[in-house]
Design a protein around this nucleic acid. Structure first.
Length: 408
DNA sequence: AGGAAGGAAGCCAGGTCCGC
DNA sequence: GCGGACCTGGCTTCCTTCCT
């Protein structure tokens, strides 16, 4: 049966690239617009949608485009900023002001290149950009700050910084388009004029898609989804989300260039701290903190402890560490599913897009384990459906776990 | 037609920093 | 100057899709 399941490139970010706002900035682990559209197709226009793991705000944006009202959560401040910028409507005057401001900034840009401009404290920055490219980018950033202020100072100018983020990725020697981020052997030397042209092209793309009016409304709120607080008495009808997978993928690792240049990150230490607050991941200090991590909630499905035990007793240098990692992942997901219950409307539906993993050859059946947590927490009509083959190891697939909630 | 690129992976090793 | 903690990214992997 599994052998007939296809990879479905149309369910990945690749498909999102050409869809206006959805293609602005890529986060490697992003799910497909199509998947959300499919689920939303049968949802009423007045339904309130929730995505507790917003990421690049795919769910929120699709829901708003569909005419629904959506609330989404993320713990990473950069993703909260990006999501809100993606889902907002921009008036005509605002777009005109941006075009004028950028024209002014570009007049100043070239004269700033040889000046001592601010650059971020990103580790080994010379691996990301050649020294000359870096000078040009830093000059452009200074010119843009002179016109628009720093990143979070004025919401109306968020689009400028989204275009700038796109520019730094396109000129960097990091390849974000493989299973995990890596660097090319050499950095490319871009000319001063080329950087300007590229920025103008990117900005044009961003502004033209920002012109499209969005019918519904979506808002990203900085929230830890393990500890959800009341939403001003709003209760949700549909939860559509793709939580992090138990695969040790670090969001910070991929987001570093954006977050440093927009000043959401100042130094390496903070990256580890942010990863530690998230579910999954592990970058920097977050990895070593696993060794002293303690279970807070022992009332979990037994299978979660069994999987961790299997990994722990398998051969592998970091078997003990990764056993804790997997245990913590499902522990935290359980806390999330528990905390979620008090903001669900009677009859609410859940759709969780999840992926399985392997550690030292041990299969971690995420959809089954999440289903067990849902069962223990009183959800009903729990069923899991396979969606696609993932583009990596042989045994890895993506699933949709659905459930319903009824007050009793 | 055939090679190259690309994609929600894990796993490991090597460099650096800092207290002793 | 030693050793452990902390940071960082390189290496195989395996199928599909893209590109020449």
């Amino acid at each position: 049966m599994l052998s007939t399941v296809k990879q479905r490139a149309d369910y990945t970010f690749k498909f999102n690239r050409t869809l206006g706002r959805h293609g602005w900035l890529r986060l490697t682990p992003a799910y497909g617009v199509k998947l959300v559209e499919k689920i939303l197709a049968s949802v009423e226009r007045d339904a309130i949608i929730l995505d507790p793991f917003s990421g690049t705000a795919t769910t929120g944006l699709v829901a708003a485009e569909h005419g629904n009202q959506a609330v989404t959560f993320d713990i990473n401040p950069f993703l909260v900023w990006l999501g809100n910028a993606k889902c907002r409507n921009y008036c005509e005057d605002c777009l005109i002001n941006i075009r004028k401001g950028v024209q002014q900034a570009l007049k100043e840009y070239k004269s700033l290149v040889e000046q001592d401009n601010w650059i971020p404290q990103i580790f080994n920055i010379e691996r990301w950009w050649s020294s000359y490219t870096l000078k040009c980018i830093a000059a452009l950033r200074t010119a843009l700050v002179n016109q628009f202020g720093e990143t979070e100072e004025n919401k109306l100018y968020d689009l400028v910084w989204i275009a700038f983020c796109r520019l730094i990725i396109e000129t960097s020697s990091a390849s974000f388009n493989h299973v995990s981020m890596s660097f090319n052997e050499t950095t490319t030397h871009f000319e001063i004029e080329y950087i300007e042209e590229l920025f103008v092209t990117i900005l044009g793309f961003v502004l033209s898609s920002a012109e499209q009016h969005i019918q519904g409304k979506a808002k990203v709120i900085k929230t830890d989804s393990r500890n959800i607080v009341e939403l001003n008495n709003i209760k949700v009808d549909q939860v559509i989300t793709s939580p992090p997978y138990p695969n040790r993928m670090s969001y910070i690792r991929e987001l570093r260039p954006y977050m440093y240049w927009t000043k959401f990150l100042d130094e390496a230490k903070e990256a580890g701290e942010i990863d530690w607050m998230a579910i999954g991941g592990t970058w920097g200090i977050a990895t070593s903190r696993l060794t002293s991590w303690q279970v807070q909630e022992w009332k979990l499905p037994e299978d979660i402890f069994l999987v961790a035990e299997r990994i722990q007793t398998s051969k592998g240098k970091n078997a003990a560490l990764l056993a804790v990692y997997v245990l913590k992942y499902f522990h935290d997901m359980h806390l999330h599913l528990s905390s979620l219950r008090h903001i669900l409307k009677n009859g609410a539906e859940l759709h969780y897009i999840v992926g399985n993993s392997t550690f030292f050859g041990n299969m971690v059946d995420t959809s089954a384990l999440i289903s067990k947590s849902m069962q223990m927490l009183g959800y009903s009509e729990i069923h899991s459906k396979i969606i696609r083959k993932r583009n990596c190891k042989k045994a890895l697939y993506e699933y949709c776990v659905s459930a319903a909630w009824s007050d009793s």
